[in-house]
Design a binder for these strands. Structure first.
Lengths: 351, 351
DNA sequence: GTGAAAGCGCTAACAA
DNA sequence: TTGTTAGCGCTTTCAC
């Protein structure tokens, strides 16, 4: 096959050593910014690197180092479908990454409990871990734990819900304000010219992702669909039973509800309620996250659209980004941008 | 950092050699299915591989071989924005892949010209190339060229438009029938209860992707929106000038057009026409492919939605798949599945 | 049929 | 401050 077709093969450390007239060890010291090299020698080597257009072969370097990327995911231990899909993707990737010198550890901490998350982060051993991905709330204790990890050389990314006030290296997830805007635009168009009220189902207003979606939603409804009236959020705390209890009360209190925005992980309770109350089949409903349940609801016409973010993409992106930070390599921001997916029953992926 | 934290490090060829009581060379022969090893020895080695749970370190293998992946993209030489975005992504990836022992060559052939494509494919030297990605029509000559490449050990993937009757290893692109269905569902909902006619703008009915979109579109309109009447396709051959000429004729001939489905690369001519004829601002319009032009049209409200496939994802996926086939490694079909993206102005990615 | 040994690009003792 | 050398996991001559 194509061994080395081109005459001028890519330069290696040996070429640098030869051109700069130094030894391999010195080249290596300069490449890895290790101390103990005279400034003048450093310059000589750097010039050679520049002249030759050298790019380091990361695979060879990792082989020589015996390097293993040790990454940790910390997720809330709720059992909703979205979290489960993240877990499945992590598990799937764990196997694939064996080929790739990367080890993933999956931790769970109590949901909606910042202190539990902080404790878990504080227990991480900097000698053994290269990067951490967390999905949790934005509180002072969490911020502190992030700072502590960063200070000990560990890269940190926030997953799904951002923690912008912290020192996290990167956020992996959608722009939740834009997601809320998108939901509003779809719902507004789907209900048509009819006036009426919109019910918003959320998890917890403490969760930044939920809060942001609501903000974006309200913004577009009031701007583009002033004939619609958005009610106060129903906080279901991602608990199906709670949602199923709260829904009938809310719907009874407002007979003119014509649409629902299920902005968090309350789809379970919502669908159960809809199944039991077919009289609400006229409601236009936009939900979040494509899961087995929401697929079914889309297919049956209970949901009109689902706003989603691809769990596989989230997890793979987190791994790529953590490895890149760990190697101080650049990241491809276009590739790592998580898109706000819109699914109708027509464009649902098969699987 | 995390050098080798675990006690039982992953098994290597040395371990296999030791356990099977053979030399490294023999292990290598078995691993790579090379001849000249007695059956009994092969079995011994395979047993050791099995027992140890060995997985080959591809990076180390590639290093030792001096292997370079040589991939070729063949695209039509039209200058529309979608092709251009593919080109940009290819160019961007070309740099990144230098770190990764992968060389990409980008070829262009006359558009809508199967023979030109075949000639280009036939000129490829199997000694120098590992994989080819093509975006072109499904004709006998193209099929033959694909078969020829495959026979000489080169992997082939079809890009954007499938060639299912051929021996291509894989198709990288969206399900275009589903894309057409999605466009229909959106357009149907956006026009509301109003009856009227729908104009479909296409490139060429010879192109499988265009044809399939139309099929899916008609299916959903006739099923879910029988009050809408879809007119015969306007074939713009992806030529802005032609589209701009044909459009006014079509619209004049049918005064009751209330929606347009721009299913191919005719957005350029369409937008120019809309700019010049603001009286058509009530038209509901669904177009294909998110590009600078369609972004602008979405932002201004000229387009109501854009159906798209991510060019970066297409290109990266093609590379991953071609490398995997070339190494006879499994592919992650979930990751390689190209999604049918729906964009409103609210969920357009920033960049 | 099988094995010994050198080497891919890079790193890391250990000397000097 | 610098250089020599062995070795990471795998492949590949070249002997035997």
């Amino acid at each position: 096959m194509s061994q080395d077709a081109n005459i001028t093969s890519t330069p290696t450390v040996n070429d640098i050593a030869r051109v700069a007239q130094v030894s391999l060890a010195t080249v290596d010291r300069v490449l890895n910014a290790r101390p103990g090299v005279r400034k003048i020698t450093v310059d000589k080597v750097n010039k050679a690197i520049e002249d030759l257009g050298y790019v380091r072969d990361t695979a060879a370097a990792n082989l020589a180092r015996g390097r293993i990327y040790n990454l940790v995911f910390i997720l809330p231990d709720t059992t909703n479908e979205f979290i489960r899909s993240l877990e499945l993707e992590i598990a799937a990737l764990t196997d694939v990454l064996k080929r790739d010198r990367t080890k993933i550890t999956n931790m769970r901490v109590a949901a909606f409990d910042p202190m539990a998350l902080s404790r878990a982060m504080n227990e991480i051993d900097p000698a053994k871990v290269d990067g951490v991905a967390i999905f949790g709330p934005e509180t002072p204790s969490v911020r502190d734990s992030i700072a502590r990890l960063r200070a000990s050389g560990i890269s940190v990314v926030s997953l799904v819900a951002d923690i912008p006030s912290s020192e996290r290296d990167h956020y992996i997830g959608v722009d939740n304000i834009a997601a809320g805007r998108t939901a509003a635009q779809l719902l507004g168009r789907f209900v048509g010219d009819k006036a009426g009220r919109i019910l918003v189902l959320t998890g917890s207003m403490l969760a930044r992702d939920h809060l942001e979606r609501r903000l974006g939603f309200d913004e577009v409804i009031s701007r583009d669909f002033p004939h619609l009236d958005v009610m106060a959020s129903l906080e279901g705390r991602d608990d199906p039973a709670l949602v199923e209890t709260l829904l009938p009360i809310a719907l009874k209190g407002a007979r003119d509800v014509i649409g629902i925005y299920s902005s968090a992980a309350g789809n379970d309770g919502l669908v159960r309620y809809l199944d039991a109350h077919p009289e609400h089949s006229q409601l236009k409903i936009i939900a979040h996250e494509l899961t087995p349940l929401s697929r079914m609801a889309l297919g049956k016409g209970q949901f009109d659209a689902v706003i989603s973010q691809n769990a596989g993409h989230l997890v793979r992106s987190a791994v790529r980004v953590l490895r890149a930070y760990s190697d101080k390599l650049p990241i491809n921001s276009a590739q790592e941008q998580i898109r706000i997916d819109i699914y109708l029953k027509e464009n649902m992926p098969l699987d």
